[in-house]
Each structure stands twice: as structure tokens, then as C-alpha cells.
């Protein structure tokens, strides 16, 4: 059951992620990315991270990606123009990428043996209560700092979005 769920949503995630990269139109990429995020949310649930799963949907899929789509619609961004100038990427991009993926997979397979397994309900420490408790005790300072960061980001976005600024 867990394997089936994992395989289904991992498959969806990978296909959608490939779609993000392959699609030429930004909005198609964006919709695919929402698919990746949605399936990741399911995988988070499988890993016992229920709060993170919901936050993933609310924050990433529900807010960040809406912003993306909003901007794409606002700029009426069309399909991208093939006008590359980076010789380096053309020559080295694909080999580097394959090397990166190969190395990452190699390390993962080597470091993490197969006997540690995941099953639904194996970890229940990811409830909203547990996260809230950690957030307001151990991680209080980062939490405050990050709220400040958000404030700065809001101000930055407002300043950048002002009409007078050219």
C-alpha cells in the first residue's frame, strides 16, 4: 500500500518535474510545478509530516505559485525565444547534469542502506502541535528573524512595485 502510494506520487512528481523543464510556455511549467508540489505534499503525509504537507499546499501551491501564475498572466509571457549565447552550458550542461545526478544517486545508495524503511504512521511527531511547540521554544529566534525577513520582503516588493521607480 505504501509502496504503491509512493510509486504513484513519485511518478507523478517526476513526470511533472520533467514537464516543468520541457514545456516552453511558462504557464504550463507553472501548472506542472503545482503538480510536483501537490504530489510532494502527499509524500510528506506518507512521511508523517501532516503539518508540512498542508503548509506545502497552502504556502507553495496556494500562495507562491498563484503569485507566479499571476505574474505570468500580468506580463502575458509567451513561449520563450530560442536565443542562447552560453557556449559553456551548451557544451558542458548535459554531461555536468548527468554527473551530478549520478553522484547524488551514488551517494544516496551508498550511505543509506535499504533496511531503513518508511511506512505510513511510522512517525507521528509532525503534528501542528509539535511543530508549534518547537517553533516557540527551540526555534524561537529563527522564527522571529524569519518574521522580520518577511516584513523586509514585503517592503522590498512594495518598493520595487512602485510606479515611480524606473
Amino acid at each position: 500500500m505504501d509502496v504503491v502510494l509512493f510509486l504513484i506520487f513519485a511518478f507523478i512528481a517526476v513526470v511533472a518535474a520533467i514537464n516543468v523543464v520541457v514545456q516552453t510556455h511558462p504557464i504550463a511549467s507553472a501548472v506542472s510545478l503545482i503538480g510536483v508540489m501537490g504530489s510532494l505534499a502527499i509524500l510528506y503525509l506518507l512521511l508523517g509530516a501532516e503539518f508540512i504537507a498542508v503548509a506545502q499546499v497552502i504556502v507553495y501551491a496556494g500562495a507562491v505559485m498563484v503569485l507566479f501564475i499571476f505574474v505570468i498572466m500580468l506580463l502575458n509571457a509567451g513561449a520563450e525565444v530560442k536565443r542562447g549565447r552560453s557556449l559553456l552550458v551548451q557544451l558542458l550542461g548535459a554531461p555536468l547534469l548527468i554527473a551530478l545526478l549520478g553522484l547524488l544517486a551514488y551517494f544516496v545508495q551508498r550511505i543509506f542502506p535499504r533496511n531503513v524503511t518508511v511506512h505510513f504512521g511510522g512517525f507521528t511527531g509532525g503534528s501542528a502541535q509539535a511543530i508549534g511547540r518547537a517553533l516557540f521554544t527551540t526555534y524561537l529566534l529563527p522564527f522571529e528573524v524569519i518574521s522580520l525577513l518577511i516584513l523586509i520582503a514585503i517592503l522590498g516588493a512594495i518598493v520595487l512595485g512602485r510606479k515611480e521607480l524606473d
Binding site: 549565447r85 552560453s86 559553456l88 552550458v89 558542458l92 555536468l96 554527473a99 551530478l100 553522484l103 551514488y106
Partner: peptide, 24 residues
């Protein structure tokens, strides 16, 4: 410094690959 972001990204990837090879 070509000014091309994608080239920079390629350099970053190159660096991480090199690092991982060294680590391995």
C-alpha cells in the same frame, strides 16, 4: 564573468560535482 547567469549556474554545478568527486 560572462554576465550570463546560466553560465554561472553551470560553474556552480561544476563546482559541486568536483566537490562530490573529491568527497567520494
Amino acid at each position: 564573468q560572462s554576465g550570463n547567469i546560466r553560465s554561472y549556474a553551470a560553474w556552480v554545478v561544476f563546482g559541486s560535482v568536483a566537490l562530490m568527486v573529491a568527497l567520494g
